[in-house]
Structure formats: C-alpha cells, structure tokens
Design a protein around this nucleic acid. Sequence first.
DNA 1: ATCCGTTGTGCAACTAGTTGCAAAAAGAGT
DNA 2: ACTCTTTTTGCAACTAGTTGCACAACGGAT
Lengths: 184, 184
Amino acid sequence: MSLPHAILTALLEKPSSGLELTRRFDRSIGYFWSATHQQIYRELGKLESEGYIRALPTEQPTRGQKKSYEVLPAGRAELARWTAAAQDPKPPRDTLLLRLRASAMVGTTGIEADLRRHLTLHQRQLAEYEEIQQRDFGPGRDTPQDRLQHLILRAGIDLETFWTRWLTHALEEFERLPAPEGSP
Amino acid sequence: MSLPHAILTALLEKPSSGLELTRRFDRSIGYFWSATHQQIYRELGKLESEGYIRALPTEQPTRGQKKSYEVLPAGRAELARWTAAAQDPKPPRDTLLLRLRASAMVGTTGIEADLRRHLTLHQRQLAEYEEIQQRDFGPGRDTPQDRLQHLILRAGIDLETFWTRWLTHALEEFERLPAPEGSP
DNA sequence: ATCCGTTGTGCAACTAGTTGCAAAAAGAGT
DNA sequence: ACTCTTTTTGCAACTAGTTGCACAACGGAT
C-alpha cells in the first residue's frame, strides 16, 4: 500500500515521466522503496484514473511518447493523510539471518563466502551514502526540508554501518568456529 | 522463495504440526521471517507433495486432526543447497522512512506521534531480545550451534538498538523544527 | 530510404503474501 | 444425549511485487 504514495512524493518533488521516475527510484527513493518501471507505469495509470495526478498537457497521447505527470490537490491531500496515519512497523524479512539459522542445522558450508560478499556490498552502499552526505549536506543547508532529508540519509548510513559491523563480527566468529558440521 | 526453507529449518529443529509451527513463527523464527498459519499449511502441503517432508505416521488423516511433519533427506539436502547458494540482499522497503520523506513535502503534522509509538515498540522488542539473551545465552553455552544462534540474536539486538537510537534522535530533531509546514 | 540501437511506454502471466471465512474433531457444561 | 467453545486444519479470493516480453517513436549510420 505504499508504492502510490512513494510516487506521489516523487512527483511532488518534481513532475516527471514514467522513465524519469524509474531512474529516481533507482537512486534516492529506491534506497528505501524500490520499484520497477512496470510497477510504476501501472501505478501511474491507476493514480491518474483516480484523479490523484494528471498528465501534463503536452498533446501527443500516443505510445512511445514521453508523458509527464503532476500531482493534483486530491493527490497531495491523500499523501498528507497517509503520512499522518499510524502504521505498524511490519516484521522484518531477512533471508540472510534465516540462512544463518538454517546453517546451524545443516552446516555452514558455503555461506561464509556469501557473508563476505554481502559485507562488500554493504560497505559500498555505505560509501555511497557518505558521499551523498558530503556532497548534499554541507553546512548552510538547514531548511526544515534539508533536516528531514538528512535525517533519512542518516538512517541509511547507520543501517549500513550496522550491517558492516555485524557481518565483520560474524566473519570473525566463523574463524573461531570448528570446521563446518557438513564436512567433518 | 524463503518460506519453504524457513519451515524446513523449523521442522529440523523439531518436528511439529501446522499449529505448532505457527506458534513458533510468532516467536523466534518470526523475528526475521513471519508467516500466517494459512501460508504455513499451504506450504506444508506443497513440501509434502514434493517429497521434502512427510507426515508422521499417526493414522487419522482427517481434517481437524493434529498432523505432525518431519523433514526427509531430500528436504535437508534442498535446505543445505539453498543455504549455501549466493543471494543478493534485497533492497529494504521501509514505510516509515518513506513517510518521513513525504512529510518533507506535505508537512510533518501527525507523524511525530507515530514516531513516538514506533520508538516504544522498538524499545519493547529490544527488551524482549535482551531477556532472551540473558536467559538462553549465559556462559557455558558454547557449541557451534549456540554461537550461531547468538550471532543471529545479536543482529536483532543491534538492529533494534539502531532504531531506538535513530528514532530518539529524530524526535529531538523534531523539537528543534519550526511548527509543521502544514499548519503555519 | 531503411536499418538499428536507444528511449519510453505498456500488457500479461506469474509468484508470494494477506484476509476472510469455514469445516472437522475434541472436550466441557448442562 | 446435546449444544457450545476451542483447537486444528484448510479453501478461496484478493493484493502487491516480479519477470518476460512487445511495441511505438526518434535519431543516427549505411
């Protein structure tokens, strides 16, 4: 129930076409809400038919032709409503932890390499976030909007920091572990 | 693609009926992979028909009758395969961060209360984890299995710690923010 | 002119998870 | 014996996300 609201947010930040949205979902917004272009187009159609957004008047309504959308007042209202409404955090779904638990039953053979891979992925993501922080949040940027954005970015940074630390610790633990139960 | 493997893991830890599994998914396993009883029954049927598990011989194969399952060798093998296979971490989907970003566009009215609510929820979860740590991971428990389980628990603890810290920080930030843009 | 890769839009089918409801058995109370 | 509740199992319909592919326009290269 969040994709439409993610799109409304993105369109409020800047009216865009489907493809532009897709690109932005690969960067900033996608860092905590990813979506494919098919999802986005489908949802744009739905949002338009519900009167939350409208296509910018650019004539050509044919296929393969760029079409930009902007948010209508009804869309902004719906977004405000949704933002303010209470929502329970949904239980995390983490495959890696699940696999680790499985490996306690069937042996740790093979999983260590993937832990290492995840570690570098998280380190890379962390570096990317820190670069953004350096670039976009120097001193001076201090409007309420900037502070909110920075707050969000810091969540990303802290999360990735947690993962890199935890994975490092996990790998150290593995060193100390006896040979995998699968191959004694 | 992970629910069947979560179930296999749970059944390896201890053969169980659908309802028992459901209860365990509400506690330990559900901390990082939740599932409803309907999902579980459906998946049990599938796993049985694929030859990964079998019902323990308890006669009565009728409805409303308790039926326990155990993992067959093929199931264990499949679980081992899946555990060792590389998997990309999937991009996080976090509604709260999304709402915060939306609130930078439509105003922060209303969201603060929910941040506070989330904070207490995370604090509660953290307390629960720490209790488990105290209870189940005192000194002495030091088999490879124990260490893996503890590692997983620590991920939970650190994650909840991150959220409580970040939410606390966010709420402090809100104090310093001017009156919500939605109501000036 | 026409072929060809790129940009941009979109449909359809599939997979996974959620919600709502119901039916069979077992035990408890009267 | 009989209803009534609880336990346990399950079906069916819905929602959200994923995968695979197709089709139109545009801009350059031959």
